[in-house]
Design a binder for these strands. Structure first.
Length: 258
DNA sequence: AATACCGTCAACCGCTGGACA
DNA sequence: CTGTCCAGCGGTTGACGGTAT
């Protein structure tokens, strides 16, 4: 099958468990000198009795020079929580938004610390919704409490921001954005007039700025692109781009988070 | 002082999907 | 098209240190 464990490689006895300082040194020196290349050949070339997978993990989670060590800042903590709300347990995607942190590190931090903190605050870490209590109360509260932010892209979207748009080759524009099957999607951006492209949102032009008709938000879960489970996360009211658009997106936003 | 319990974290395991022959 | 190899991912495990009993 398509899987192989460290046991299936060569008869030679492979070491497991914690890494010794000598092993670390061998692996570190090898990769600094020759780069990674093919992980399966690294142990042989570096003189290690480990499988390539084990070497890869050790490098990524511990030896890499660009790793940030030490405890998580409050800012990082908040970022992890908001990214987890959007992406779920996609630790590598979450880690990609936190320079110097590994997916393993974030996963451990989440499981050992953050989950507990959220529960203490009365928030279910799985759903990010209030635990127990009066469900109707919490549902009523949501639409009445949108968060409206204005400013540069990285300020308004600290949780994925400029990098997200750049990586996805998307210029954020007026419209709805949301989550479907834990992927962030943009829907209907850049469109004016109503119900274009099968989307169920409306907008109109007012003094040169396109304005969303938020009444249509309630319809957005119904069959956009034939998808279910679409969960709107935010809408861009107005925006203005600036800077070098070829080098990545820059702009000022007026955004409403649901 | 002994040991049971708990939290943290490094590392492993097994699965998935992409690349390639 | 099929099979194999491999990197990457997320869940799980186990070692270890600290704290409670």
């Amino acid at each position: 099958m398509g899987h192989q464990s460290c046991n299936s490689a060569p008869k030679q006895k492979l070491r497991k468990g914690l890494w010794s300082p000598e092993e670390d040194e061998k692996l570190y020196n090898h990769i600094i000198r020759y780069g990674v290349g093919c992980w399966s050949s690294v142990p042989k070339l570096a003189g290690l009795q480990r499988c390539g997978k084990s070497c890869r993990l050790r490098w990524i989670n511990y030896l890499r020079p660009d790793l940030k060590r030490g405890s998580f800042s409050q800012q990082e903590e908040d970022l992890i929580v908001s990214l987890h709300e959007m992406l779920g347990n996609r630790w590598s995607q979450i880690a990609s938004q936190l320079p110097g942190r590994t997916d393993n590190e974030i996963k451990n931090f989440w499981n050992s610390s953050l989950k507990k903190k959220l529960r203490q605050r009365g928030i279910d870490p799985a759903t990010h919704k209030p635990i127990g209590g009066d469900a109707s109360e919490s549902q009523e509260e949501k639409p009445n409490n949108p968060t409206i932010l204005s400013g540069p892209v990285d300020q308004v979207f600290p949780n994925f921001g400029q990098q997200y748009f750049t990586e996805h080759g998307v210029t954020p524009s007026m419209g709805f954005y949301g989550v479907n099957n834990s992927e962030l999607y943009e829907y209907g951006y850049g469109e004016s007039s109503s119900n274009s492209g099968g989307s169920n949102w409306n907008c109109s032009s007012v003094s040169g700025n396109e304005v969303l008709n938020w009444d249509s938000v309630t319809h957005i879960g119904n069959g956009i692109l034939g998808e279910e489970n679409f969960e709107p996360k935010f809408g861009v009211h107005t925006w203005q781009e600036h800077g070098d658009m070829n080098g990545g997106f820059e702009g000022d936003f007026n955004v409403e988070f649901f």
